[in-house]
Design a protein around this nucleic acid. Structure first.
Length: 346
DNA sequence: AATCCATACAACCGCCGACGC
DNA sequence: CGCGTCGGCGGTTGTATGGAT
């Protein structure tokens, strides 16, 4: 019996399942009054008969004031697809680049809408390589990559890494996820997720989000075995780049200083709760995509599948994603990361 | 109206690393 | 060093909901 299982048994009196509005209210009040701390203490002190873990999850995924509500915008969808092509199933890291979105939300979104769409549109989603490094994922029946906590996700996602014209046509989307393929692509500089296209006005890809200068900070395939994403602040291990890349991000604290100002200057803390049985999030995503299956294509490009507008990113129009100007936000974040993941109310 | 089915998503589970003792 | 606790993560499940029949 696992440790957590024993803990669960020891806490059999604790509530499980859906949260009641009263529980939500208790947690919100406590968090706004006392801020974050030890979740076990929070659960206890807030008068919640829940385990700390449950409280944490509820707060992070549902009650946090800075959470965005509503369906994913097309920009967010594109960003998710793009980031997933780079990061694989590292939902937390993807969420870190989508302000107001949680890893759970993105994961659900991916597992429902996006993955389905991609499959419908004949995009190759790589099958998970049989991993011998872990034994706890052997029961996984999904095509999700195996996970281990040394950041060696053994695959990830879709074989249409970047919706940009920067890629050589030799980047076949029909092949299986191959380390050697990916490496060769990488080392030949045909695959650098963070490069900026020559035409800097081409914001079709998401490089605009990353604010990666075309300057020299981008090193690809250097001898130290690391790939630097320049100002993006990422380090990719060369032997794992592409769909198997390891990406190291600086601690959130490092960038919070850049963003905390906005948080602190915003004195209006709004509790935007999703009501119980009052979920206004409808699946507008169905209308966002074209379900046309092109049987002639053995692998579609993401922008084809999702109907990316080549001019979209460079249109200059103000993008509204909830309350966020996602584009502007990303542009202003040198090291893109989500400052509120460890949200704390002062 | 009843039933079935697909979907969305909230929440749980199990695992791991970090940390303190 | 071993152990327990905690937080975090990704995978999976459970349930509410809406549409189709």
């Amino acid at each position: 019996m696992g440790k957590d299982k024993m803990n669960n048994n020891n806490k059999a009196k604790l509530r499980k399942g859906l949260w009641s509005p009263e529980e939500d209210e208790k947690l919100i009040k406590y968090m706004l009054t006392n801020g974050q701390g030890c979740w076990s203490d929070i659960a206890r002190n807030a008068g919640l008969f829940r385990c700390g873990k449950s409280c944490r999850l509820r707060w992070i995924n549902y009650l946090r004031p800075d959470l965005k509500r509503g369906a994913f915008s097309s920009q967010e969808e594109q960003l998710i697809v793009h980031l997933h092509s780079i990061l694989g199933n590292r939902w937390s890291q993807i969420a870190a680049r989508l302000p107001g979105r949680t890893d759970n939300e993105i994961k659900n979104f991916w597992n429902s809408a996006l993955k389905k769409r991609l499959k419908l549109n004949n995009v190759i989603i790589s099958a998970p390589p049989t991993s011998s490094s872990t034994n706890h994922d052997s029961d996984s029946s999904s095509d999700q990559p195996s996970r281990d906590h040394h950041h060696h996700v053994t695959t990830g996602g879709i074989m249409i890494p970047i919706p940009m014209s920067m890629y050589s046509s030799s980047l076949s989307t029909t092949s299986s996820t191959s380390m050697s393929n990916m490496q060769s692509i990488v080392t030949s500089k045909q695959f650098d997720p963070f490069l900026v296209p020559d035409d800097s006005s081409d914001m079709t890809g998401l490089t605009g989000f990353f604010n990666v200068p075309t300057s020299l900070t981008t090193q690809v395939g250097m001898g130290d075995g690391l790939f630097y994403g320049g100002d993006y602040g990422m380090v990719l291990e060369s032997n794992k780049l592409g769909l198997e890349s390891d990406i190291f991000l600086p601690p959130l604290e490092n960038i919070r200083s850049n963003n905390i100002i906005n948080e602190e200057t915003n004195n209006n803390v709004v509790i935007g709760m999703k009501g119980h049985n009052n979920n206004n999030i409808s699946s507008n995503i169905n209308t966002c995509f074209n379900n046309t299956i092109d049987h002639n294509n053995q692998g579609s490009r993401v922008e084809d599948v999702f109907g990316f507008d080549q001019n979209h990113w460079g249109s200059g129009e103000t993008l509204r994603v909830g309350e966020w100007d996602l584009e502007g936000l990303m542009e202003n974040i040198v090291v893109p990361s989500f400052p509120f993941l460890d949200f704390q109310v002062e």
